[in-house]
Design a protein around this nucleic acid. Structure first.
Lengths: 141, 141
DNA sequence: GATGCAGTTGAGATTCATTCTCAATAAACT
DNA sequence: AGTTTATTGAGAATGAATCTCAACTGCATC
């Protein structure tokens, strides 16, 4: 968490953005407990701690966190954009259950290697993987 | 196209759904020219041919086409859900350019095999793959 | 530690894709 | 052809995400 905060601070500074209280609160919420989260999750989580921040600000701040590389956009869920940590988290695949909404994470590196090769063939420079599948988890089949 | 229509008809029948004019018009539009399309594309395309169908009906029909296996949901684009053909189209990966929006399709089967294996390890039953990456195409780097 | 100036925030309005409602209509079976 | 039942169209409703703008706050300077 120390390190994340510093990365964030540096990122903001490098963009001439201010390290405001709402931005800190949001980033703390992001790193507090969630693996996957959406804007509403953050809003509720922050509210519980009585450090209220408006939804608008969260919507404005999340893209900064993405740009800084601390989180990234993940699969959508229930027609909401959802996000996940990247800093300190290996890339992984998502298996998302169509029935119960559970997200299962699985290994990655072999798949990534293959994809990297295909991208190379197309002279395409990857900035972010988007790998997974929908279906039914073992409990819902 | 002959075959698609029959598949569709059979699918509808198997679900006790009627083969209505709007459903036919929509399915013809889907198979007329697009590789990737969204609801609005279909609406405009149908309008051009003076076979008007309401947006509501298109929104209601597209999920049927998905369920029948003729098309599938693809990446979102410009905050719209987009769809692509599956029938008669190999699965493939998408490389989507963050700069110019171009979608590059690439091979698939090796990646799919790997993913199938991972899914099997999790006892997860895949109904639809979602594979790709964002980045910059060779023209935009 | 007061001052000034951007950049930032909050609240509510707005946008826009998607879904819903319901009366009118059409498929399909007898 | 008549009956039943699903389907359609038009517009209203929903809801996530974005925008607006006046009030506010980091933060650099004195």
């Amino acid at each position: 968490m120390k390190k994340e905060k510093e990365l964030y601070r540096d990122f903001l500074r490098s963009k001439n953005l201010k390290l405001t209280k709402p931005r800190l609160v949001i980033m703390e919420a992001v790193f507090e407990n969630h693996e996957h989260f959406n804007v509403d999750d953050l809003y509720e989580q922050i509210k519980k701690k009585h450090k209220n921040v408006s939804r608008a600000t969260i919507y404005r701040t999340v893209p900064l966190l993405v740009e800084s590389g601390l989180i990234k956009q993940s699969l959508r869920c229930e027609s909401k954009d959802i996000y996940e940590h990247t800093y300190g988290h290996e890339n992984h695949l998502h298996f998302i259950c169509e029935n119960c909404g559970k997200i299962i994470e699985s290994g990655f590196s072999d798949v990534a290697n293959l994809i990297d090769q295909l991208a190379k063939d197309e002279k395409f420079k990857i900035s972010e993987y988007n790998l997974g599948a929908r279906g039914k988890c073992k409990d819902c089949q």
